[in-house]
Simulated assay, not measured.
Amino acid sequence: MNRIKKVFLRVHVVLWALFSWLVALQLSQSGPQWQRLAVAVIATCLYAFYGQFWLLTRYPGKRNRRAYYLRLTLLVFSAPVWYLLLHHRQFDRNEDLADNYVISLVSIVLPFLFLGWLARITENLVLNTVRKEQLEKQAVEAELQSLKSQINPHFLFNTLNNIHTLVYKQAPAAPDAVMQLASLMRYMIYESNAPTVPLARELKYLEDYMGLQQLRYRERPVVDLQVSGDTEACHVAPLLFIHLLENAYKHSSARLAPGDIRVQVEVQHDTLTFSVQNPVGTPAAAPPLEGAGGIGLPNVRKRLALLYPEQHTLELHDTGTTFTVVLRIHGLQPQPYEREAHLLYH
Score class of each variant (00 low, 15 high):
E338Y: 12
T73S: 14
A177M: 00
N193P: 01
A98C: 12
P288S: 13
P287N: 11
E290Q: 15
G61E: 06
E338H: 15
Q170L: 07
L297T: 15
S275I: 04
R65Y: 03
G259A: 04
L125V: 07
V326S: 08
Y190K: 00
A248M: 06
V126D: 10
F77T: 14
T44V: 10
L97F: 14
A248G: 06
K204G: 09
P80N: 07
R63I: 10
P32L: 09
E219K: 11
D99F: 11
A182E: 03
S30E: 14
A173P: 05
S149V: 00
H87D: 08
A194F: 02
L225A: 09
L307R: 07
F323A: 05
L72R: 05
L37R: 04
A233W: 03
L9R: 04
S183H: 06
P258T: 09
W34R: 08
L327C: 04
I4L: 09
P309H: 03
S78H: 14
P258E: 11
F323M: 13
L125N: 11
V106Q: 03
L343P: 01
K5F: 12
F49S: 03
A67S: 07
R3S: 14
I42N: 04
D270M: 01
P153V: 06
L272T: 01
P221L: 08
E191A: 10
L289C: 13
S107Y: 13
S252N: 09
L239C: 04
S275M: 05
G211F: 00
Q213E: 14
K6N: 13
T73P: 06
A79I: 01
G61C: 04
G61Q: 11
Q335E: 15
Y190P: 00
P238Q: 15
G229F: 01
N162C: 12
Y209E: 00
Y168E: 12
L74D: 14
